[in-house]
Design a protein around this nucleic acid. Structure first.
Length: 382
RNA sequence: GCAAGGGUGGCAGAGCGGUCAAUUGCUCCAGACUGUAAAUCUGGCGCCGAGAGGCUACGGGGGUUCGAAUCCCUCCCCUUGCA
């Protein structure tokens, strides 16, 4: 398991060797939550330049089943995806569903997370150990420890508990990871030994002190990757509208500086193209986010400056369903060379999305993914 | 021709004397979405007005009533059954 770091002009660039090929940072991974990027296939992903994927332990277990995947031969083969796959622990998903549905069967204790089993009626408990076991059976290249996210503006007591529990769970997760791979603590630090990478998650909400405590405790345990957790978790709306963006910028910069220089830093759930640029410059290396894929299905397309109907720092947005594009025969983005932009015009994509045609979701998703990959590619080679 | 049931906003379809500019769904017009329980959710949707408010509206016309989409008369049109 080899991780090489090169720092040029204050910019971090990792090369990570995995069982499924080499990864270069900065890296953006789209979310294939249920073992699929909704509405596109593996050939579309290759064509869009997707280098790695994120899937989630909880959803995979519920919808596919890790025992099944182990018997089948792993998720890579199942999905026909040859590049690295990162499995998220399920912590965020449990948090999300518990937060939305406060039923009595949904609760988190030190032992783990209980939740109502919607999908299969059976699987309804996730512990740090179970999460690692599932990720092991899935056969992912990068694994994440189970953590406990909290709403960013919650009480200090809850932030404290979340940090303490996240540390305890990280310790248990690592022990289980070592056991599953039949490794010792020394083996873990031996770069000659091939194994998946293990990521811990820094919690602490919007509190700088607790972010620091969380980071220090996790570094003490020792991981390959340190992640920024809980960023978009607000009681209201998004981070953009909910609080001064400057604060979050300050927070992610602060946390980056708490982490070892030679370890990969993973910004969970980040972000918009502007967020990616900011976070990369602030010292973060790998990212995942649902925005490009979900927004594609919601007719929100990322385009180059000057090509859309709304402008942000590094990009424009095109609300393709809006009436102004009814007769627009231009490609979605004249500066894009993706399959969609080479094949159909705005008027037709507008029609497809308005009529909820799956082909429209595919075209839109291919475009947004290509835009994101191009964007991260530009950051990498800037 | 006779009998019965209908005609409501772009469409479908509630309402059957006042709280109706009119439930609801769709369409339409916008907006949101950041480790996806999201092909989802939110707002708007007769006309004028920033607003208070005003104006025109439930097939056409007439009537009853303080007040009608709702009751009565008449005409037009649609559906079904019988000739």
């Amino acid at each position: 398991m080899k991780v090489e770091l090169e720092i040029k002009n204050c910019k971090r660039k990792f090369k990570v060797h995995t069982k499924h090929g080499e990864l270069k940072t900065p890296l953006f991974m789209p979310d294939a939550t249920y073992g699929a990027i909704t509405s596109v296939g593996s050939d579309d992903l290759r064509q869009s330049g997707v280098e790695a994927l994120v899937t989630t332990t909880l959803h995979i277990e519920q919808k596919i089943g890790s025992d099944y995947l182990e018997k089948y031969g792993g998720l890579h083969k199942f999905m026909d995806f040859k590049n690295p796959i990162l499995t998220d622990s399920g912590g965020y998903q449990v948090f999300s569903l518990i937060h939305r549905n406060k039923s009595k069967s949904n609760m988190i204790t030190d032992a783990g997370c209980s939740f109502s089993a919607e999908a299969n009626g059976k699987f309804n408990f996730l512990s740090p150990e179970i999460s690692q076991q599932i990720q092991h059976k899935i056969g992912s290249d990068i694994r994440v420890v189970l953590d406990e996210p909290v709403i960013e503006d919650t009480s200090l007591a809850k932030i404290k508990r979340s940090v303490e529990r996240t540390t305890k769970w990280a310790k248990r997760s690592k022990q289980e990871f070592l056991r599953l791979h039949d490794l010792t603590e020394n083996d873990f630090n031996n770069p000659q030994i091939e194994r998946p990478l293990l990521a811990a998650v820094v919690q602490g909400a919007n509190n700088f002190k607790y972010r620091q405590i969380s980071a220090e405790q996790l570094i003490e345990i020792g991981f390959d990757i340190y992640s920024f957790g809980g960023l978009p978790l607000h009681s209201r709306n998004s981070w953009k509208n909910d609080a001064p963006q400057g604060f979050y910028h300050e927070l992610i910069s602060y946390v980056a500086n708490l982490l070892p220089v030679d370890k990969i830093r993973y910004g969970l759930g980040i972000g918009s193209p502007d967020d990616l640029e900011y976070a990369y410059k602030a010292g973060w290396d790998i990212f995942d986010c649902v925005l490009p894929t979900r927004n594609a299905r919601h007719a929100y397309l990322y385009v180059h400056k000057g090509q859309g109907d709304r402008s942000y720092k590094t990009y424009d947005v095109l609300h393709i369903k809006n009436g102004q594009y009814q007769f627009d025969k231009n490609p979605i983005d004249a500066k894009c060379s993706c399959l969609t932009c080479k094949t159909i015009d705005r008027a037709y994509l507008r029609y497809l999305l308005r009529t909820h045609n799956p082909t429209g979701y595919r075209y839109a998703t291919i475009h947004n993914l290509t835009f994101y990959m191009q964007h991260i590619h530009n950051l990498r080679h800037a």
